[in-house]
Amino acid sequence: MHSVVAAHLSLDPAFDFDQLTAFPFLVNALEAGTIVAVMAGVVGWFMTLRRESFAGHSLSLMAFPGATGALLVGLPAALGYFAFCGAGALVIGAAAGAGGARGRGEESAVTGAVQALGLACGFLFLSLYRGVLASYESVLFGSYLGITSGQVLALAGVAAGSLAFFAVVGRPLLFASVDGAVAGASGVPTRGLGVAFLLALGLAVAATAQITGVLLVFALLVAPAATAQLVTPRVGVGLALGVALGIVTVWLGVALAYATDYPIGFFITTVATSFYVLARAARALVARPPAWRRRRVAHPPSEGAAAA
């Protein structure tokens, strides 16, 4: 976890940029981070809207058995991430579909079970491996070192597929997310879209975990999107802002980790959370009177016996 060269970030962005792009491992980290930020920004925006953060959280933990399982059988870690997160998404999605109208409650129960089982498997794989897992912490808390060009390519491929998916289903998915009953009545396949979205979420989580680590996925998945939703209720602007904030977060995170030699996960989380806190504070400053004061008296005395 020590960078090979001494680095000193200055206040001159051009100079810093030159420093950051001077080494291939840093270029790989920035490329991978940017790709992940784009994907996480879009997926996270929909996840926040759909209130599926619990599913997202559980899927992120599936990256742990993914990483350790791949290690155990000698496959690339990235493959393990995608396989386990994707499979977890399908299980949760199938449970939600089978639950029908009661899908929400069923979904969170199954999600919790999947999460616990995943963590347990991860721990089992780890003890079966017996060897020393040198990058134990980096699986959990992220690392920007050792990202290969092949990994960057794989991430780019998954991100391209994910963005193509959103380009096709974006509008009906938005409809189903904010207004499921009406969307269903107007012919949107809400259940199928729900499962497809969970799969996209699982893949985005698997990609993000490769940079931020299993436990800090939410720094890129939730914080930028939630910040964007605080700033603007516009759909297009919000999506773009979430992606932009994610990219800025990743670049600052890589730069600070490189300059200070402290873990990248800490910096990404801190930067992302700072944006969110700033947005909240800014909103509180310009806030109009709280909603309850603008409303009229909510309920007049009861109408008594009605004609029904």
């Binding site: 096709v168 289903v169 509008r171 009906p172 904010v178 107007s186 949107v188 939703q229 605080l230 759909v235």
Partner: peptide, 25 residues
């Protein structure tokens, strides 16, 4: 509830084209 940060006008537009594939832009 207050956490739903979607504009009313976008919700109305979804009534017009929400079932069509594509981006909501």
């Amino acid at each position: 509830d207050a956490a739903v940060r979607i504009r009313g006008i976008d919700l109305v537009r979804l009534g017009l084209d929400g079932a069509r594939w594509g981006l909501p832009l």
